[in-house]
Simulated assay, not measured.
Amino acid sequence: MHIVIAGGSGFVGKALQERLLKDGHEVTILTRNKEKVAEKNRLRAVEWLNPNSNPEKYLGNVDAIINIAGESINGFRWTKTKKKQIIESRIRTTREIVRIIGEMDPKPKVLVNGSAVGYYGMSDEDTFTEESKTEANDFLATVVRKWEEEAKQAEKFGVRTVYARLGVVLGKGGALPLMALPYKIGVGGPVGSGNQWVPWVHQDDVADLLLLAIENDSISGPLNVTAPNPVKNNEFGKTIGRVLHRPHWMPVPSFTMKMLLGEMSEMLLSGQCVIPRRALHSGYTYHYPELEQALENILR
């Protein structure tokens, strides 16, 4: 297949590139700076989101588009400027993807658009599947809802659309190195109450689940891209400690996180128990269904 990736140079995008190329697919990366993409056999770059760039002219026949572009939600604090960048980057890139699809002939069969489990809001008690309804109105839930509404516009062109609701992706990059750092220096422990859920997933399973969304015609709408066995923050930390042979003993109080990170601290002090029902019902077999084996693979 010929698969186009927007956001292909990021942490998740690079793992996805490797997976698709390994399987023999042709991959095109949409990028503002073609020099950042090391083109090679079956991998090329096409410029987009720059003045006078017309990516649709250079794409040819495309089977699928994966859009995981957008400003990182990680950072020190969510300032007004940062929050504006987070939401506008997702709306802008998704709107441009839909525009490109409208210009393409033939159309791709499927758009797999990035999303997040933040859609469900935060809860220590509830369990969420793709069928769960939510009235959450916190910042992340609002961003995700608007993001998915923008992607839904692709359906008017007859393109099957999937919202890939990613959890906390574990790999050599992303959030895990910062989460593991306190343990490496001997001061690891629960964050806040430790009772908040962590809807984690290994990056290898992320790549395969995004490919599943492309290949399985019965999947449309939301797809939870999480592992089948979420854990609470206290257990997550204990597992890091076991894998690294380091103690799990020093709590990080909620007020400290709020003082340091402001509104962004809610992402760490709260969570959601998310179950990937559609992936499981499709028969997908996880590489890393359990947290300890996932962390063993990454941290050792």
Rank of each mutant, 00 (worst) to 15 (best):
P251M: 10
M250H: 00
N229L: 06
D208A: 15
V225R: 09
D205K: 03
I219V: 03
I214Q: 03
N233E: 11
I219H: 06
L210G: 08
E235W: 07
G241I: 03
L223C: 00
P222G: 09
M250C: 12
I214R: 04
N224A: 12
G237F: 09
H248Y: 14
S220E: 15
I240E: 03
H245F: 13
N224G: 01
N224K: 04
K238V: 05
W249K: 13
P253S: 08
T226C: 12
R242Q: 03
N229T: 11
N216E: 14
I219L: 15
L211Q: 13
N224T: 04
L211E: 14
N234M: 08
P228H: 06
S218A: 11
V243H: 10
A213K: 13
V252P: 05
N229C: 02
G241N: 06
R246W: 04
V252G: 10
P222S: 06
L223D: 10
N224S: 07
S218Y: 05
V243R: 09
N224F: 08
N216G: 02
N224R: 09
E215T: 10
G221A: 05
G241T: 01
L211F: 14
V231Q: 02
L210M: 14
S218P: 00
L211A: 12
A213V: 09
S218R: 13
D204F: 12
H248T: 08
A227E: 09
E215R: 15
G241S: 09
V206R: 07
N233H: 06
P253C: 11
V252H: 05
M250E: 00
V243C: 03
H248M: 04
P222D: 07
R246V: 01
L244P: 05
V206D: 05
P222I: 07
S218I: 06
I240H: 02
V231F: 07
M250G: 00
L209W: 03
N216F: 03
W249T: 12
G237Q: 13
I214G: 02
P253G: 11
D217K: 15
N233V: 01
P222Q: 11
G221L: 11
V206C: 12
N234Q: 12
K238M: 11
P230D: 00
L223H: 08
E215W: 02
P253D: 12
T226L: 08
L223V: 10
R246Q: 09
E235M: 12
P228K: 03
G221H: 11
D208N: 13
D204H: 13
E215C: 00
V206T: 07
A207G: 10
R242F: 01
I240C: 08
N229W: 01
H245R: 15
L244C: 00
S220D: 13
P251F: 07
P251R: 09
L211G: 01
P253N: 08
P228V: 06
V225E: 04
A207T: 04
P251D: 11
T226F: 07
N234V: 06
W249E: 00
H248E: 04
V206N: 10
L212C: 07
G237P: 10
G241C: 04
A207N: 06
V206Y: 09
L244T: 05
D208E: 15
S218E: 14
